[in-house]
Design a protein around this nucleic acid. Structure first.
Length: 265
DNA sequence: AAAGAGCTCAACCGCGATCGT
DNA sequence: AACGATCGCGGTTGAGCTCTT
């Protein structure tokens, strides 16, 4: 039993626009700290856990929205072959994506896709082989997994080159996709030279750009590991221009329309 | 047009890890 | 070292939406 959510007066279920507004306002003003105290201080009848979840999975301004691109999907498959169901680890390699989002996408799309292609989503081996072998947990054998991942990407017609595949493969990595405080947000918005495209599609055919935003300046990003930098550099190109359009809404005229935050999606 | 089936994803639950005393 | 509080993760659920018949 999680004693963070035991108060019977605490509200559950879908978040309202008003609740979202309160939480966003509070965090942008005060930053993230002590989730247990957040609901009380923000005037919410929610438990801290629920607030944290809502913020990390939905309200965080650095989140990408929409379906994963082909490239992101390939990254997820590759990372999954290496890390298994460690969704938060996988998400840490995909800036702007949450563990929950990746987990959902895996369960609803990628699993089926792989099965359709004759690949076992658990082992990343061809189903015909898997049927003859006892199930092998992905985390147990690092060396064979590198091969598996490469094979998987290749089978998918993947466009990842060897460096990218190796980068994905390396043990653990970007631990901290930096969170952004209110001050930083203002800085980013004022510095951003992004076009104000109004496209809402996350279509991978869209030419990708990313803002002139140096992540190393933010948060506790103490990754001294060069590998992480490689991964980060590769992944930064995944940022969708349109994601930053919501930041203006957050900071200026955020007028909630529904629980679908910011009415953008 | 209506009903049922199938799908998606936000939110919840429970557990283990970590931190502070 | 022990214990309670808090956090974060992965699995699961179910409401609402879309598709099919």
């Amino acid at each position: 039993m999680d004693h963070l959510c035991v108060n019977r007066y605490e509200k559950k279920g879908p978040w309202t626009a008003e609740e979202d507004r309160k939480l966003v306002n509070f965090i942008l003003t005060n930053g993230q700290c002590c989730w247990r105290a957040v609901p009380k201080l923000a005037g919410l009848l929610r438990c801290g856990k629920s607030c944290r979840l809502r913020w990390t999975n939905y309200l965080r301004p650095d989140l990408k929205r929409g379906l994963l691109s082909d490239y992101e999907e390939k990254m997820v498959i590759g990372l999954h072959s290496k890390l298994g169901n460690r969704w938060s680890k996988i998400a840490s390699h995909l800036p702007g994506r949450t563990d929950n989002e990746i987990k959902n996408h895996w369960n609803t799309h990628i699993k089926k896709k792989l099965r359709k292609m004759g690949i076992d989503p658990l082992t990343h081996k061809p189903l015909s082989i898997v049927e003859q072998e006892p199930i092998e947990q992905p985390l147990e054998e690092p060396t064979s997994k590198k091969k598996n991942m490469s094979e998987t990407v290749t089978r998918l017609g993947g466009s990842l080159d060897n460096d990218q595949v190796m980068a994905i493969n390396l043990e653990y990595g970007v631990e901290d996709v930096p969170l952004i405080d209110a001050e930083s947000l203002e800085l980013i918005c004022s510095n951003s030279t992004m076009s104000s495209s109004t496209s809402t599609s996350s279509n991978s055919s869209t030419e990708l750009q990313f803002p002139d935003f140096d992540w190393s300046d933010y948060g506790n990003n103490d990754n001294s590991n060069g590998v992480d930098n490689i991964i980060e550099n590769n992944m930064m190109s995944l940022w969708d221009v349109d994601d930053f359009s919501s930041w203006d809404l957050l900071l200026n005229d955020y007028i909630p329309q529904s629980s679908s935050t910011f009415g953008l999606f």
